[in-house]
Amino acid sequence: MIEVADLSVAYGTGRRRVLAVDRVSLSVPTGEMGALVGPSGCGKSTILYAVDGLIPPTEGTISVADEPVHGVRRDVALILQDAGLLPWKTVRQNAELALRIQGVGEDVADILNTLGLTGFENSFPAELSEGMKRRVGIARALALHPRVLLMDEPMANLDSLTREHIQKLILDLWKSLRFTALLVTHDIEEAVFLGRHVFVLSRRPARVVEAIANPEAGTAAYRGSDTFVQRVRYLHELLGGVQ
């Protein structure tokens, strides 16, 4: 479970102090997927980085699997917007980065195979398509078998076909591995399609405007259903008011 209680994050001090997140509380039950949706630059990624332990909370508490977060944890993985691949490392080296940093001698051949990257182990990111880069980013995150997967707009700047392909891939992995996930996105349809718990955020500083239960999320049949369309429309109206 991901539990965020009264989280506030501020950058800078004195007159240059900027409040990015203001008393945000949210909860994602174990094995489920939550989605944070809100205007650009509202502080969505800041919340995600705080959950990952990269940014210390100014106020409030964060816990993952009933343990408070005080820094980066081995059982929590983060996927960045552009996959965060290091261009000087090959596909294999990128995928096993977290393993090597943590001193784990495990092989990544299986996960690369699952993600359709076999045959490209020795390629550099510059030799890959955008979709393949995102898959390498997913492989790196899953290499340590995390209990919690944090995703910072993992489908941003992808064409619609590749975006749907990656969405399906994430869903399949989530169903088979059953990690708890928190997705940051500015795409309303994506949030409704993937997130069983959708948290709508205000403009900066981020506050939770509404938490929407979305139990149908995560099934192929849900996209295009009346409920899906209504929820997307409702979120559009809600975010229109927020913006």
Partner: peptide, 15 residues
């Protein structure tokens, strides 16, 4: 993003 991805993997300063 390079720094974030490596810090997120648990890298030390030397890492």
């Amino acid at each position: 993003s390079f720094v974030t991805s490596v810090r997120s993997a648990g890298a030390t300063k030397w890492g």
